[in-house]
Structure formats: C-alpha cells, structure tokens
C-alpha cells in the first residue's frame, strides 16, 4: 500500500469516526475507574464488569427480543457485580485488589460457562439473534461535508459517553456528594470526623463505576459488534484504568486520555498497511502513551517551577517593600 493512500485515509472523516468508535469502550469504564479512584477504593474489576454486562445484554436482548430490556439488564448486572465487589471490600474487609482480581476471573469463566449452557458454544453467541442499539443519524449535521461523516451515524453509546463525562464532572465538582467522595478519597479519617459515612460513600462510588463500566461492555457487544465473544473486552478495562492516571484523575482529562488511546490504535490500524514490521506498528499505542506521560510531566514541572518563581518574586517584592518602611 502506497504511503499517500495511507496518509489520505488518516486525514479522512472515516478515520476520526473510527477514533470515536474505538475510544467509546475505553471512555466509559475509565470514568468508572476515575470515580472509584477518587473515593479511595479503586475498582480494578472494570474488565470483569464489562464482560458480564456485554454477556447479559446480548442474552437478554436475544431471549426477550427487546434491545431496551437487554441494555437495562446489562446495566443492572454491572451494578450488581460492583455491589458484590463493594460487599467483599467494605463489609468483609477483603483487599479490594484481591477481590477485583477474583471478580475478573469469575467473569471470564462465568460468562463462558453460561454461554456454553445456553448456546452449546464456548466461542461466541452468534447462534443467538441478539439486538444492537441504533445509530444516530443527525439531520442537517450529516449533510455537512467533513464533520457530518465524523459525528453522524455513530451509535448511541458514543453520545452517552460524552454525556456521562459531563455528568461525572458535574457530580464530582458541583455537588456536595462529589466533594464528600473526594474528601473520603483524600483523607478518610478526616472525612469520618466530619460525619461523612466513608463506607457508604465508597459503596456509592463502586455502584456508579459498575453503571459506567456496564455501558462500556454493552458498547462492545451491542453496538461495536452484534454478538458476545469470550474475553471480547480484551484488556480494555485495564487500559481504561491507565487512562484515569494519564488523564490526571480528572473527568475531561480521562476522556482525552481515552481518546488518545483510541487515536493511537486507529493510527496503528492505518499505518499497518505499509510494509513495516508488524511488531513496530503494534508498539504505537504504547509509544504514544509514554510520550503523553513525558509531555504531561514536563508540563506539570514547568507549571510548578513557574509557581515557585512567582512565589519567590512575590516574596522578594514584599521583602523589598517591607525594607522600605
């Protein structure tokens, strides 16, 4: 494949559309990871929750014939799984990392087992006629040359991902519950003395993360693809956790980090067409991550230095004026 064709594909509307498509199942669980991380009880079971929701959504929509019921069941299953995680961690005092690993293993094996019981197939659910969520075609906007092809025709979860990012930002920084949650994460003892129920706050954070991650799972099986396949989340729940930290533990930062991962992935798909070693192309997402971390840290340090310099100058000025008196 010649270089100019690849270049043209990268600067096309279809490429940006694919970035959004690839990012969505990262953004949603990443938001869930963010909330639990800020509450001090990090949910590393995002991967397992996504799998269970992806599976439940497909099964319920196939047997009920209703996409809506499938989505609702998928979300409920995700919340239930995170309740189990919360119960083990907050009531039974299990280490949350340990409980999270257990849930991930349970989800991998459990979904395959139930898939086999229900369909007699250990690979995927293609023998079931499950539904998919609708794509949103925006009137007027879809006629705009470039932008129309990027944002119109995407499935509904892409929009939900952006909407939920905004809602999470509002929840965390504009509501009392959000400040309680952050207080619990910063210093649980201090929050406790202020009368905040630490366990309840963390449980709520875990339940919300289950809600958010379940949309990520449903994106995989009811929007991106139209079936459930064993282990189909393929590590996205863990990449989402990386996005939380790359995004500086902020909602919009997390969204940007998830989109960066999506971009790197989409880029590797396009560049892979060139005759370069496949191993090199497959490193692109990781190289981009490291570069982003370096840039982020350099910027943070620059800001810190800047602040220190200003503080020093201010002090100098104050001392200077003080000396004059």
């Amino acid at each position: 494949m010649s270089f100019d064709v690849v270049l043209r594909s990268i600067f096309s509307a279809a490429f940006l559309a694919s970035v959004l498509r690839i990012s969505t199942p990262l953004i949603l669980p990443a938001l869930g990871g963010l909330i639990t991380d800020l509450s001090g009880a990090i949910n590393i079971a995002l991967e397992g929750i996504m799998l269970v929701s992806a599976f439940t959504g497909v099964i319920v929509s196939a047997y009920s014939g209703s996409v809506g019921l499938g989505v609702i069941a998928g979300v409920i299953s995700g919340i239930l799984i995170s309740y189990v995680l919360g119960w083990f961690h907050l009531h039974m005092k299990t280490d949350i990392i340990l409980a999270g690993i257990a849930i991930n293993i349970l989800a991998t094996g459990g979904t395959i087992f139930l898939l086999f019981v229900l369909t007699g197939d250990k690979g995927n659910s293609q023998s079931l006629a499950s539904g998919t969520v609708p794509n949103i075609h925006l009137p007027f906007i879809q006629d705009i040359p470039f932008i129309g092809r990027v944002i119109s025709g995407q499935h509904v979860f892409v929009w939900i991902a952006f909407l939920l990012t905004w809602l999470v930002a509002v929840y965390l920084y504009r509501t009392p519950w959000g400040s309680h949650l952050r207080a619990v994460g910063e210093n649980p003892d201090a929050a406790e003395t202020m009368g905040i129920n630490v366990n309840r706050t963390r449980m709520i954070a875990l339940l919300i993360s289950g809600f958010l991650a379940s949309f990520g799972g449903l994106t995989m099986s009811m929007a991106y693809l139209s079936f459930f396949q064993r282990e189909m989340t393929a590590g996205r729940g863990f990449i989402a956790l990386a996005a939380v930290y790359l995004g500086g533990r902020k909602p919009w930062g997390t969204l940007a980090a998830a989109i960066l991962f999506g971009f790197a992935d989409a880029l590797s798909h396009q560049l892979g067409s060139l005759r370069v070693p496949s191993q090199l192309v497959q490193t692109i997402p990781y190289v981009v991550t490291i570069l982003a971390l370096v840039i982020y840290n350099l910027r943070e340090q620059a800001i810190k230095r800047d602040r220190q310099r200003k503080f020093y100058e201010q002090q100098q000025a104050e001392m200077g004026s003080g000396g004059g008196l």
Binding site: M1, F15, M220, F227, M232, H269
Partner: peptide
C-alpha cells in the same frame, strides 16, 4: 473481534 473489525474497516477504507 472488535480489533479484527477495525483492521478490516481500515483496509476497505484504503
């Protein structure tokens, strides 16, 4: 399969 789909879409696009 999501990755397989994405790779194939990129090829069809090219």
């Amino acid at each position: 399969p999501a990755r397989g789909k994405e790779l194939a879409l990129a090829m069809y696009q090219q």
